[in-house]
Design a protein around this nucleic acid. Structure first.
Lengths: 242, 242
DNA sequence: CGTCGCATTGATAAAAATCAAACTTGGTGG
DNA sequence: CCACCAAGTTTGATTTTTATCAATGCGACG
């Protein structure tokens, strides 16, 4: 279960050792992408399917004005571009937020693996459907929720997702984002994010410094965010279904 | 080519008569869903794949406060829940905005059609990937763009998508939305939408009344919106690639 | 002809952006 | 070890955008 993708998929499917091994085998070619550089740029036509093994990356759209909006964060076990070979070119960039370890998987190998395995096919479908659900939640974040609620919600999301891949240590996990980057994700200015974070700290919900976030009061945080984890569609037997 | 889905897919793939016919055959069971009622409710576990044949629907998330956010509009040729059978339950509702004609397609029949047909499989993957790209664009709308830009962008999107399925008449098409609904899509209050629409009219970009929108100045509108149609990934030979 | 759902208008308040400066802090090199 | 630097954070003052509240207008429809 050391492979990040296997780890993630195990939240909704029981994988055999062979299946886990096959998934590990896919990740033969691994590259390290330095922070602040593109894993995939807008306009690229990727030959490989990229899988984040380590570190944080972000999908980002940049407008002519130079302003940018993140539309997703990618962590351990997340695909950058599953099935994007279907499309001619990337319509957005994927940028490493921290140094990232990325697996370059040849599409045909992934296809070969899934073709005869309905369970794995379903599991990968689950991951794309959850990605979509997360996108919808981000629309709610930017459209309907206040800055305070949106930041709280984003923290809940990343906390939950980090738990899914086993990178939460007690109540603390990596959130390697500057206030500017938190703003790019929630649609606010860094100055405003700063003030929101102060309120979240003052409310006793979180500690946050040096890229590490500690959840001081999970119930309070989820309440403030209006966070409900159902949209991840974890199977009810999972340890995460508290 | 009378089937809305065939019509849509023909933007990226050349379908044979047999393929078009197979798609039409899928749409055997058709129901009319009255405006303002759910096609699928949150929590449902749909047995069928639902395809909108006629009318407008919206994906919507409702918060405890009662506020709602639309996360997508569905028109002729759009799936409500392609492959959602993978998930246990719907995490959002799909509501008919107008009266809708909806095809109820048994999942196995759709699977049977795509299983042996790589072209159709790719075409359906294209449609889901474009749906995702549209979600990302909505995040940019609500997060980064001003209300004025966001409304302009939404109009551009729906104009383009309406063109893709052949329901634009000259420079006029159906936009059967109240100002409250435009607000639910862009994250603004109806009052503010009203003022934004007045500005768009005053700028000579659009006319809009009675649920019909006329584009008076497409270049100006796209410029105001920062609209670029690349994210639909229409193949370069398509009539829409002007 | 009244009424209901929408659209519009105006006045005011709240949320968030903008602008500008000062403060921390972790790292670097002398 | 210390001074300095750059990146990021924090603070304050001000402006802009958008929400809120409350009426009024209006057109389709029974």
């Amino acid at each position: 279960m050391s492979n990040p993708l296997s780890r993630k998929l195990s939240n909704i499917a029981s994988l055999t050792d062979e299946e886990s091994q096959s998934i590990s085998d896919l990740c033969e070619r691994i590259e390290v992408v330095p922070a602040k550089t593109d894993i995939i740029s807008e306009g690229d036509r990727p030959d490989y399917v990229h899988l984040v093994l380590e570190g944080w990356a972000a999908r980002s759209k940049v407008l002519e004005s130079g302003k940018r909006q993140f539309t997703a964060f990618l962590i351990r076990g997340d695909f950058c571009d599953l099935h994007v070979t279907i499309l001619a070119r990337m319509d957005h960039a994927i940028t490493a937020v921290t140094n990232c370890k990325v697996a370059y998987i040849p599409s045909p190998e992934l296809e070969r693996l899934t073709l005869g395995n309905a369970k794995l096919t379903r599991a990968l479908w689950w991951s794309t459907l959850v990605d979509e659900a997360v996108l919808r939640e981000w629309i709610v974040n930017t459209g309907l929720r206040s800055a305070y609620e949106a930041v709280a919600h984003l923290i809940c999301e990343m906390h939950f997702r980090s738990q899914m891949v086993g990178i939460v240590d007690g109540d603390t996990f990596d959130l390697p984002l500057t206030q500017e980057e938190l703003g790019a994700a929630t649609g606010h200015t860094p100055v405003h994010i700063n003030r929101v974070l102060q309120k979240l700290r003052a409310a006793g919900l979180i500690d946050f410094r040096g890229g590490r976030l500690t959840v001081r009061d999970l119930d309070g945080l989820e309440e403030a965010a209006g966070f409900e984890s159902e949209y991840f569609h974890i199977r009810s037997g999972s340890p995460l279904t508290s």
